[in-house]
């Protein structure tokens, strides 16, 4: 399986490389280093949000509330900044992580302890989080002029031309890789998603793993909320509206199985990069940005159908000649 996955991730990487080459030939500015940096910077939010979503999907769950969480936490940190300007930026990051994580734990507890299906819970909290923005700010906006320089400046810091948002996404990716591959809790996510009954017999607690997954998902969404608001200089009720579906799309393209228990960090990052490349290529190719949605829809369907062929029900190998043929094919 891991071999096949690597194989599939390889294919995805190859497709992205071909796409980049093709687009660069057609529109040379796309192939430049600075544009590449731009793509990575623009896709940074999608990288981390998709990784967090993958962690939830691994447990057979789904978190539809991430974009609403992003908007609400972004708004709350923005308002906090109006009251306490000029604190170090990391305080805002920590605050956003805490608020977002708290919102995620609300999802987690409804799912883990009341056993309400994740899609129902996060559909409800999606509406609640978004609406709460209006309740807390009375329908107004937080604009750049309201933001202190430490608050607004942080996401625009650069290292090697890459923004701090990208570097944070990189850190998230490394942490996710380490967490999912090298820790018991991380492997536990694969276990509860792969076979919940077996996980229970192994002493792995489903409620713990679910709280963990939705907490992480919320925390990453919250942190993205602060970075988003500061970077784009505005917080209002509609920001990142519908973004949850882009995030899920990145996971699906990256080979994360909605059925749980299957997904890799590399695949998910490639899935996000795929969408990022398309989004950035359209203006360069002077194609209307309205194409973005249609293309990502077509790509999701293509990715899904290719995966489905790979996972289709195989006949059992009972006849001796069939077994021999399969053994030979393997060699």
């Amino acid at each position: 399986m891991s071999l096949l996955l690597r194989y599939r991730e390889g294919i995805l990487a190859l497709i992205i490389a071909l796409m980049v080459t093709g687009i660069s030939l057609y529109a040379p500015p796309f192939g430049t280093l600075s544009n590449g940096v731009g793509v990575l910077n623009d896709t940074a939010f999608l990288f981390m949000m998709a990784l967090a979503q993958m962690i939830v999907i691994l447990t057979r769950g789904i978190d539809l509330s991430v974009a609403a969480n992003l908007a609400l936490t972004g708004m709350l940190t923005g308002m906090f900044n109006m009251v306490f300007p000029d604190l170090p930026a990391l305080i805002y990051v920590a605050l956003a992580l805490a608020i977002g994580g708290g919102l995620g734990l609300i999802n987690g507890s409804l799912i883990a302890f009341l056993r309400i299906p994740p899609i129902v819970v996060t559909l409800g909290t999606l509406a609640i989080f978004r609406g709460t923005i209006v309740v807390v700010d009375g329908g107004s906006q937080v604009n750049t002029s309201d933001m202190s320089s430490t608050f607004a400046g942080f996401p625009k810091l650069e290292l090697f031309g890459l923004s701090s948002v990208f570097w944070i996404a990189a850190i998230v990716a490394v942490l996710a890789w380490f967490f999912l591959g090298q820790t018991r809790s991380g492997r536990g996510l694969y276990a509860v998603g792969g076979n919940p009954v077996a996980a229970r017999y192994c002493g792995i607690s489903l409620p713990y793993q679910q709280m963990l997954a939705y907490g992480i998902s919320g925390a990453v969404a919250g942190m993205s909320g602060y970075l988003w608001v500061a970077r784009y200089g505005v917080a209002y009720v509609e920001i990142a509206s519908g973004y949850e579906l882009t995030v899920i799309a990145a996971c699906v393209i990256g080979g994360v199985s909605i059925g749980g228990g299957v997904g890799t960090v590399a695949g998910t990052l490639l899935g996000a990069l795929f969408i990022g490349v398309i989004v950035n290529a359209l203006p360069v190719m002077q194609v209307s940005p309205f194409w973005q949605m249609a293309i990502s829809g077509a790509v999701i369907l293509a990715a899904v159908i290719i995966n489905a062929r790979a996972e289709g029900r195989a006949l059992k190998l009972i006849l001796p000649e069939a077994r021999r043929a399969a053994a030979q094919a393997k060699r």
Binding site: R184, S185, A191, G194, N195, C202
Partner: peptide, 22 residues
């Protein structure tokens, strides 16, 4: 009661992987 997507080794030790938290 096992995990189809994981390796044999991981199936054997799931829940009590050597090495503690990591």
């Amino acid at each position: 009661v096992m995990f189809d997507e994981l390796s044999v080794a991981e199936n054997i030790f799931m829940g009590h992987m050597p090495g503690g938290r990591f």
